[in-house]
Structures are given as C-alpha cells and as structure tokens.
Design a protein around this nucleic acid. Structure first.
Lengths: 195, 195
DNA sequence: CTCCAATGTTGACAGCGTTCATACCATCTG
DNA sequence: CAGATGGTATGAACGCTGTCAACATTGGAG
C-alpha cells in the first residue's frame, strides 16, 4: 500500500519533511518542489492540502510553537509545588527554556515568530507559551515575591524581554552565554529580595 | 548624460529603489529584476556592484539601522542637559523612538534585524543605537536614578526588552498602544522613584 | 456495481537569481 | 591625436521556483 497512487497522509508528511528541512537550512531555503521530490510525489500534489507554500510553512511554524510549548510544559512539570521557591524556579526555568529553544532551534524560532506566521493572529489556545508565562507570574506574585507596584503590565514586559533576548541571541547580536546574566538582571528588577 | 550607456551611480540608485520597495512590500517581495526594470537597466548590471541579491538587501538593511540611529539622535538632541530630568527623558525617549521606528517602518525593521542582515557581525560604529542606549543608561545611573544593585547587565536587558517589544508589536502579537504601558512598566522596574 | 469526491499526475507558464560572453565608453598612456 | 585599459552595462541563456488547469486514478458510499 505504500506504493499506491494515493499517499494517504501527504499533508502530515509534507509538514514533517518541511519541518526537518526548516530545522536544517531555514525557511528561506526550503522549496515545495524539493519536498515533493523527497516524498516522491508530484509538486502540485501539495495544493490539495495547502493553499500555497506559505500555508505549508505556517503549519511548520505552528509546530515550532508547539515545540516551545512542550519545553515550557516540561519546565512547569519539573518544578511542582506551591512554595515560593518552586514558583521562582518555574518562572526562571520558563525564561531559560524560551532562550534555549531559540538557540537550539534557531531556524524554527525565526519561522515561528517571523513575518510569515503572524503570531498575533493566532487563536488563544495556540498561544500556550504566553499563558504559561502569565501563570508563572501570577504564582510568583501570589507568594509576594514581586517588588510592590510592579505587577501592572509585567506580563507583556517579561514576554517582550525574553523574546527580545532570544531574538538578539539568534541574530548573533548577543552571545548565548549572556542568557544567565539576563535572567539574573531581570530577577533583580522584578523580585523584592534577590536570591 | 542621463541617457548614456553608463548609469553613473547604479549602486546608490539600486539601494534607494530597493529601500522604497522594501518599505512598501517587505524584503521578501522585492526582486532584483523588478528593481532593474524600474531603473531601466539590465538585470545583470547589478552584479557589478553587489555580490548577489542578499548583498543588496544587506545594504538596505544598513539604511534601516541608519534610519533608526537618526531617530535616536534626534531624541537625544531634543532633551539636552545634565539634569536628572533630562537624563530620564532621554532614556524614555530612546525607548519610544525604537518602538516608533518598528511601527512606522515595519518592513525595514524586519529586514534590518532579520536573518539576512546578521546584526551581530556589524562593525561597532554601525551599532549606534545600542551605544546611544548605553550612554543614556550611564547618564541615568550617574544621576542616581536607578535602583541600587540593578546596573549590572542592564544594557543588554534594556536593549532586549525594547527590541522584543518592538518585534512583538511588529508581528501583531502586541498592540501598538501597549508601548506606553511597556515604557512605564520598565521604568517602575528600573528606577528608584517612579515619576 | 457504479459513481463521486478526494487525491495524485502531467505539462505548461511566468518569473526568479545568476552567469557568461560581448559591447560600450571614459580616461589614461604614448 | 591614436590606441589600449578596465570599469560598466547588455543580451541571451540556464536551471530553478511557485502555481495552475486539465486529466488520471482510486477508495469508499449509495
């Protein structure tokens, strides 16, 4: 059946193949034709499943978001409990996971948060990373760890900071080792007493 | 002379044309052939001045950096003086200018800080924006406005925050109006007494 | 068993970046 | 003033791309 006229799961296969090629060479260097050839399928077969090339790449971008979300989920799971220490560990861990994702999966990160994917227009449940960050921030606040009067707008500020740090590291403007310095700096800014 | 066989200043003309097309449609939607056609020049003429298309786009990206730098220079000039108030105004103004640039020149911002341009490998004097931010941070610190023990790593943190905010606004993930909230939030985090 | 809708193919089109051989022409040399 | 030089532009060509319309094949529902 593997050799039959119909592929059976072309859509998933194309996303997967595109995903690995994006990981290797970046979104700009993947071609629909190349993917089709690797899958031993005619180039135009893709158009039964995707509106165009960008549509396929958007699907890959969603995989990137999912991968980031998974990393963050793991971090949350690794630091359970309702103690202040756990809350702080979760928060810092989430930041580190975000940066680690950007470094490990540079190309995927660029696609996911690039112009093609328009993160801004995603459905809320696809924006897991932001929600997790919000939750961690709430926990940290609930334990009274934040400096007073600092909470307003902090969700956005923290997300922006982390995302900017990740972006600049990906572009080579800031060396990857600076990640810890950043987390520390951010902690000093936010927390009442620095650990 | 305008009709002569030799153009005379093709390189500059191409960068300029590419710049306006990037501004309008984004770097992904400009073609070397299109630019050549607009300039009434053969497509291959470009290769006397640029190694390839990416090389031309990199030049455009530098224009973006210059434009940002110019905005920031204007801000510094608009708030002269060695008073604490002026220092704070300069600092906040620089942040706002960065965000405004990203919003006004979305496509240019994406190109300048995108994968193609590799901001990280630029010569130091091309990185004016970061230097200006550093200087403003020094001023603000010299006047004792910062919360104690917060200065270490703050250059990078502030740059990352602002850049991340700009990026997320550009991608549509955060609405442009949130800029002021961000500046306020950042101020609360950094400054000893909030204005 | 037949027909349908989904899925894949074939072939073509226009456009792209890039290259190579060639033509042009301002300027410097004799 | 003649001629060589070398930077600059041209033209045609190559291989590649995304995309489309017309056609072929198939599995499954009626």
């Amino acid at each position: 059946m593997a050799r039959s006229y119909h592929h059976g799961a072309l859509a998933e296969a194309m996303v997967e193949q595109a995903l690995t090629e994006v990981r290797l060479h970046g979104a700009d260097h993947v071609s629909l034709r190349g993917i089709a050839q690797t899958l031993e399928v005619s180039p135009s077969a893709a158009y039964n499943h995707f509106a165009d090339k960008d549509d396929l790449l958007r699907a890959v971008g969603l995989c990137g978001l999912a991968a980031l979300d998974e990393r963050m989920t793991r971090v949350v799971a690794a630091h359970p409990g309702d103690t202040p220490e756990a809350a702080r560990a979760r928060f810092a861990g989430l930041g580190r996971a975000y940066l680690a994702f950007a470094i490990d999966e540079t190309h995927l990160f660029q696609l996911t948060f690039g112009p093609l994917c328009a993160v801004g227009e995603m459905s809320p449940d696809e924006t897991g990373p932001y929600l997790k960050l919000q939750a961690a921030l709430d926990d940290v606040d609930r334990h009274g760890l934040l400096r007073p009067g600092v909470r307003e707008g902090l969700d956005v500020t923290v997300w922006a900071s982390t995302h900017g740090m990740a972006s600049l590291m990906v572009e080579g403007a800031i060396p990857p080792e600076a990640g810890d310095v950043f987390i520390d700096s951010m902690s000093r800014l936010m927390f009442a007493e620095h650990a």
